[in-house]
């Protein structure tokens, strides 16, 4: 412990920051894409058309029962096959790019469950009131139900995003250089596991702890008072 060498971190800070930037980019992409796809899935799940319900339920159940590491590796390998099938050409995707796709698709399943309970938390009368005003289904959803569902679920959506931010570390499985991957690669070279892994753990803790406190604060300030 006495020879904890901070210079290793200082020297490699640029590389670590680059990794952290990648982690944040994947998190934001997957959050936005995941919430959009997740909302569509939730609407399908709650629609009255049976095939749409089955599709959404199947999607959510499959992705929620598989370990994320397995999906990351599987998509990394299968995505080029699918692209080749569609375009007929070999398109190299790369580990770093495939992760954007994987996390968006995977997180959509989790966001969809959150949005579903958000939509179900809106009183039925609200939809009826929308229809009574002459709204179509789309308008009632767009202007009445979804804004409330989103607001009710905002803290849960953000908590899921904190989990997502941590889960990006699993791109370790395909060797992409996220924040943890960067630290791991430096460790392989400089053989300073104590400094590198501790730094990663502390930085993750500070970011996630701060964010989760913010979510807690938000939760007490955003609630709709009925």
């Amino acid at each position: 412990m006495s020879d904890f060498d901070f210079s290793v971190i200082v020297q490699n800070w640029a590389f670590l920051a680059e990794g952290l930037r990648y982690t944040l980019q994947v998190t934001l992409t997957a959050m936005i894409g995941g919430i959009l796809i997740g909302t569509v899935l939730a609407l399908m799940r709650l629609s009255s058309i049976a095939p749409l319900q089955w599709f959404a339920a199947g999607y959510v159940n499959v992705f929620r029962s598989v370990p994320l590491v397995q999906v990351i590796l599987a998509f990394y390998l299968i995505l080029p096959l699918v692209l080749q099938m569609i375009t007929g050409k070999q398109i190299p995707v790369g580990a770093a790019n495939s992760a954007y796709f994987t996390f968006t698709i995977f997180e959509a399943a989790y966001y969809s469950e959150i949005m579903r309970s958000g939509i179900q938390s809106v009183p039925r009368g609200q939809v009826g009131a929308g229809y009574a005003l002459g709204f179509t289904y789309g308008q009632a959803m767009r202007y009445v139900v979804l804004p409330q569902a989103f607001r009710n679920m905002l803290p849960v959506l953000l908590t899921q995003t904190i989990i997502l931010f941590q889960d990006v570390s699993l791109v370790y499985a395909i060797g992409a250089t996220d924040f943890f991957g960067a630290a791991d690669k430096i460790t392989q070279r400089d053989l300073r596991p104590v400094e590198m892994y501790t730094t990663v753990a502390v930085v993750y803790f500070i970011i996630c702890f701060t964010l989760s406190r913010l979510v807690k604060w938000l939760q007490s300030h955003i609630a709709i008072i009925r």
Binding site: Q166, S169, V194, Y197, Y204
Partner: peptide, 14 residues
Amino acid sequence: NVPLIVQLFMWFFV
């Protein structure tokens, strides 16, 4: 607030 893989590496290497 620390990812599982980082925790495991802490237990093994740190």
